[in-house]
Every structure is written in C-alpha cells, then in structure tokens.
Amino acid sequence: MTFSIVGHGHDARGEAAWGVAVASKFLAVGNAVPAAVAGVGALATQADANVAWKGIGLSLLDEGATASVAVQRMIEEDDKRDHRQLGMVDGEGGAATYTGTACLDWAGGLAEDGPEGGGGVAIQGNVLAGPEVVDEMKRAWDAAAGEPLGRRLLAALAAGDAAGGDRRGRQSAALLVVSDGAGYAGLDDVAVDLRVDDHPDPVSELGRLLDLNDFYLTASTEDEKVPVTAELAAELDERARAAGHRDLAAWVGTENYEMRVAEDGSWIDRKVLDLLRGQH
C-alpha cells in the first residue's frame, strides 16, 4: 500500500546524509514507515509494517551489521515476514530490500550499493500500478546524482507518483533526512523531517514544504553569507526599526530567520538581506 526510497548521499553542505521518502494511500505514512540516524543508516518498513523494525534495524546497523545482513536477520525472526516489506541503507552506503511473498500485487523492489563513500539506494513498493513505478524511481534517482539527498529522494518519489504510484490513490507522503550537525542550530542530526498526513496531492505538497524547510531550517552555505560591516550593521538595524522591531535581532527572531543570520552578527544570508531591503 506504499512506495518508498531509502538512500545515502550528501546534504547541501557536502556532508554524508541518509534518508527516506515515502508516499501512500494511507493516513500519516510518515508516522509508520521511515527511520534514520546519521552515521548509522536509514530504513523503511511497510506493507503490513512491523514498526518495531525501525528500532531493531537501526540497532543492528549501529552494532556493525551491513544492510543485507540486518535485513536477513530481521525477516528470519519475524513469523509474519511474508506480509512485510523493508528497504535499508547502512552507514557505508550498502543497500538491501525485501518483499514478502504475501504482499499485495504489484509488489517488489530493487537495491543497489553505492560506490565507496555513499550513494546506496533501496526502492520498494506494494499495491503499485506496476513495476514501472520502481523503475521510474530508480531512473530519477540516477538522474539526480550530485543533488542534495533530500532533493534526490523527492525527485525519485515524484517520478514514482507520476508513474502511477499506489494504485489505490494518494493520501500522504513524508521525507526524512539526517546528517551530523544538520538539525536546528546544529544541535541534532535531523536535516529534514516533513510529513503531509492527508492531502489530495501529497508529493507535490511535500515539495512545497521542502522549499520552506531549505530556507527556514537549513543553515546558510558559505556562498550565501554576506559579511556584516559596520556600515551594513547600521543599515540592518535601521531597516529593522522601520519594520517595527527593536533591532535586527528582534526582526530575525520574529521572522524565524535564526538559521540564516550569525548569532554574533558577523554575517547575514543574502536572501534574508534582500527580504529586509525589499520590505521598504
């Protein structure tokens, strides 16, 4: 009842990243299917999903198991394995996928290890329009090589959706990407954690949310940072006061631009600077 892609790549900073994109005719699929920990790996559990596999799988990977070994151990110990589906990528980019024989047609997947240093991918789905869903997802994944992982996963998910996706229809989608230090203020590993729980076009809505996430919740790259001189600092405070705020820091906090302005005031993101100047 679901199609997903689990992958290893890099984030906008060039740091190693792991993630999952998933869509389904199922309410809040992001609550059940994806799991990931930076440096450890990522997985998707679906069909008659065994949600306990999320913790079990990540623990096996953390203990040193490869994706293929972890998947084999998990299905051997589950007496409902014929009804399960699982995709996994380990910390080194190794990939594995499993589809139980009792999963509803069309059901299947593919897995491909990445080159040394990352790039592994596992794609799987059940109750799909046909095998072309998985094929188109792989084609889009390959075509997006070099893109940040979140964008690459979303491109593959959109391609699967366009190829027919879940043959019962659309309802929800989710995207989870982790990378060391990529979270809010750099304090955790969650680079992207977006869920569209109930929507007529959830994959497109997920794309809109990713655009917002990239702006509000992703740290500026070095190329996006504008050094703040004494003259620019005076301008920024003046413009912030003209917008009704005490100073630039108050404007930044009100507009939720904390990830795009240096805490010590030494730089400001080019897009944020343009927004502030554009207000007046």
Rank of each mutant, 00 (worst) to 15 (best):
M88V: 15
M259P: 00
H10E: 12
D264F: 00
A159S: 00
I56G: 12
E263I: 09
L58G: 06
R260P: 11
L60W: 08
R151A: 15
L232Q: 00
A145F: 05
G64M: 00
N50F: 05
D166C: 06
V22L: 00
V178D: 06
A159I: 05
D197Y: 08
V192A: 04
L209V: 11
V121A: 05
E205F: 10
A102Q: 13
V51C: 10
P34T: 10
W251M: 11
G120V: 07
Y216E: 00
T218R: 13
R239Y: 08
A233N: 07
A163D: 03
L153F: 01
G169I: 01
G30Y: 00
V121I: 10
Q85E: 10
G100M: 03
D166M: 03
K25C: 11
A233G: 14
A143R: 09
G19V: 08
G57A: 04
G100S: 02
G207D: 02
A44M: 00
L194A: 07
R260F: 03
A185K: 15
V178G: 05
E258H: 13
A52G: 13
A28P: 03
R151K: 15
A159P: 00
E222P: 09
E112W: 11
A129P: 01
E132R: 14
E235K: 08
V190E: 09
A32H: 14
G181C: 04
G207M: 03
H83V: 15
L110E: 08
L176V: 02
R167S: 14
H10L: 09
L149S: 06
E77A: 14
D90G: 09
A250F: 00
E238G: 13
R195V: 06
D197S: 14
V190D: 10
Y257I: 06
A36Q: 02
R195W: 04
A185G: 10
R239N: 07
Q72I: 12
N256P: 07
P34L: 04
M259F: 02
D193V: 04
